[in-house]
Computed example of a mutant assay.
Amino acid sequence: MSRVLTTAVAVVPITHSILPRCLRLSNLPPSLTATSHTRTFRRRFFSLYNFRAVSSPVKAGFDVFGDGGSIVQDTGATALVIAGAYALVSTFDFLSERNLIEQNLSRKLVHIISGLLFMASWPIFSASRWARYFASVVPLTNCLRLVTHGLSLVTDEGLIKSVTREGKPEELLRGPLYYVLVLILSAVLFWRESPVGVVSLAMMCGGDGIADIVGRRFGSTKIPYNKQKSWAGSLSMFVFGFLVSIGMLYYFSALGYFHLDWVSTVERVAVVSFVATMVESLPITGTVDDNISVPLVSMVVASLAFA
């Protein structure tokens, strides 16, 4: 028995000294060092759905930023999302070039899917305060691509057909460019810690994107104050903008980035969806592109609603 105690006295300090500093008992919060709080300790440090509860997460990879972020993780996530975005656009380029899908439908499907997948990828980035800037590299890459093709510095007919209305390179410098700029703005300003950015992108991608598809096919009855918009399109924007927003909010809430009172959340999202739908229906498209008006109005209303 005495040998066991002697061994323990020698081994425990050595083992404790080689542990990462953030896991040593002397550096843990006082509320987590007592054995009576073992369940709390496990919940805070090992929960699959609570990524923000840990004040000092275990540092992995190359901790060059000093706040637990991993440059390896963020670089890998950025490369993965860029590859996915390129594959998505290339797929619709291929389909539209071979007339397997209508050009307008291809453009809107890229509009809907790419933004939502970009937002859904945010959880794979690290907890570093710089992670949002790594994520922003993805739409920034697309931004540079649109500018070079829009200025005809490089020619890519497939890209032009898949994301423009009339197949003209200069169109890339309008709606598509505004679209990726909003993605950058939402990631940098709001990131995954605020419902505002989530709702704004959901309204731009899901609501506005689906409204155009439905409006073109079933929009025979036009809105009196704007003959270019239909009741079917506006109704679909309100419904799908609302549903996509709720779905994405639930996604981030389930992962623990924020906690919401769902009764009031449903009401607030309905208000944002209604206001965004009204703005989208106005005859101002020739002056202000929907990819600017819809997300910016959504940001303002959602900021007030979730304040």
Rank of each mutant, 00 (worst) to 15 (best):
R217H: 14
T221G: 00
L173Q: 01
S264L: 15
G209Q: 07
F218A: 12
K227R: 13
W191H: 13
S200A: 14
V196M: 11
G256K: 05
S253D: 10
S220V: 03
R268K: 12
V263H: 07
N226A: 15
S236Y: 06
V272F: 00
Y250P: 03
T265M: 10
V214Y: 02
S186T: 11
I213A: 06
H259W: 07
G197C: 11
A270C: 02
S186L: 14
L183K: 07
P195D: 13
P224L: 11
S245L: 02
Y179N: 02
K222Q: 09
S264K: 04
I184N: 00
R217A: 14
V275P: 12
I210S: 15
E171N: 05
I210P: 08
I223N: 08
F252L: 03
K227Y: 10
S200N: 09
M203E: 07
F240H: 11
R268C: 00
Q228R: 15
L201A: 06
V199S: 07
V244D: 00
W262M: 13
E280S: 00
L243N: 05
Q228G: 15
G256H: 05
S186C: 14
P176E: 04
W262I: 06
G219T: 09
F240C: 15
S186V: 13
A270Y: 06
V271E: 12
N226E: 00
S230D: 10
G175A: 14
V271H: 07
S281H: 04
L185K: 02
R217V: 14
Y250R: 01
T277W: 00
L249C: 08
V188N: 10
A276E: 05
G219W: 04
V275I: 14
V198W: 06
F238Q: 15
E267L: 09
